[in-house]
Nucleic acid binder design. Structure first.
Lengths: 217, 217
DNA sequence: TTAAGCTTTCAACAGTTGTTGAATAATTGG
DNA sequence: CCAATTATTCAACAACTGTTGAAAGCTTAA
């Protein structure tokens, strides 16, 4: 009996759907490919999840609660350890990013696929923004509030534009396209989230400080 | 005779394919939707471009040369106006981004779609990196060389990680997902490239400086 | 054991997909 | 003008799509 046999067919469908959707996007995957990858009949996906889009939503929401809780508790920890001025920009960004790294280092390949799926959704026009909002807005607003507290002189919209830049850098990292590997001729590896965040945290923090202090008009 | 009639059917196919591929991705668009949008028979796309993937490549390559030339000349201009130390980080990033803004302000809606298509390709795992390399590597290496000259103390891989962050911020901007609009409750608009770059340039420049000076190990 | 309720497979559906070969129309060069 | 090339449409193909109803298998509890 292989390991796959011990996992319920329902979860096998979720796992392979997660992987395929992350690699090829919603329209690039057929239910038959998912069923075949899960070693299961085509109809079983419909039985468990309904329409194809419902399956996609189930995949996207499966790990959301755990991930959000992990990032929120990292933020709370930083806030508890800070003085009344609240955590610094670096500390807030650290709490925003590091949990994603731990998720990868758990050794669960599924997490890696899930993060790539987030990148796919976040970069998708129109419907992507809706789906992202539903799952992540509450958490993101917490972080933005913490950033605003750390940067009291910031113009209202500058906080959002800076967050947008951070979100973009993060999204491209999560997508794991391998482009930076090739460009740097192997000096950087897309799969090395820790190395990415080691640079992204000071990079983004310096950006926030520069933009949100220099421009007070 | 409407305006559409004055444009060759071949170009109408390219235009509508550009728009649809940018909005829904490669697999999210059918040749019949393209043909219908161009008011043309399905077979005509195959006649002019061959397979569906060939059409996609034709779309992706159509504006590449012009765009690359525009960005390269912006870099050359900055280099000509600089002293022998070369242009500053801000000036290099400015040359990297501003041509994309001009492309939008030309009023040609097609450019906007094309930039969103670049975002789609750049964020796509595996095949995206190959396609990006083929079209943009030569130009990107020019910019990275200029950045390295502006940051002589930088560790080799830090330049690439910083560029990765900039590329991610840019990619999410080009994707025009509308997410930042919603998150900021209208304070920021995805369609306003100038506002995005006004923040992105000092943001990224500060990030480059911080990362590529502080860490010399 | 039996009956009930899940789970899984089987078989088939109507519609859509990319692609092609032949037929027709439009354009061009002599 | 005609002939030849190019552009465009028409019709059809085999393969594949998501979805469903019915049948069969399995688990569980009385």
């Amino acid at each position: 009996m292989t390991k796959a046999d011990t996992i319920s067919k329902r979860n096998r469908i979720l796992n392979i759907a997660e992987e395929l959707f992350a690699q090829r996007g919603y329209d690039g995957v057929t239910l038959r490919q998912i069923a075949s990858g899960a070693n299961v009949d085509v109809a079983l996906a419909s039985y468990h999840f309904g329409k194809k889009l419902d399956l996609f939503n189930a995949v996207f929401e499966r790990r959301a609660e755990l991930l959000n809780a992990s990032r929120l508790s990292a933020l709370r920890l930083a806030q508890d350890n800070a003085n009344k001025k609240g955590p610094s920009v670096e500390q807030v960004i650290e709490a925003f990013l590091r949990p994603l790294e731990i998720a990868q280092e758990s050794g669960d390949e599924g997490w890696k696929n899930y993060l790539a799926l987030i990148a796919y959704v976040n970069n998708s026009p129109h419907w992507g923004a809706l789906m992202m909002s539903k799952i992540f807005d509450e958490l993101v607003n917490e972080f933005i509030a913490a950033l605003r507290k750390a940067l009291p002189n910031a113009k209202h919209e500058d906080i959002y534009w800076c967050y947008h830049n951070l979100s973009g850098a993060l999204t491209l990292t999560l997508a794991q396209t391998g482009r930076i590997d090739k460009l740097s001729k192997g000096a950087c590896r897309s799969s090395d989230f820790r190395a990415a965040y080691d640079v992204m945290i000071p990079f983004a923090a310096a950006g926030f400080r520069k933009v949100c202090k220099a421009r007070k008009d």
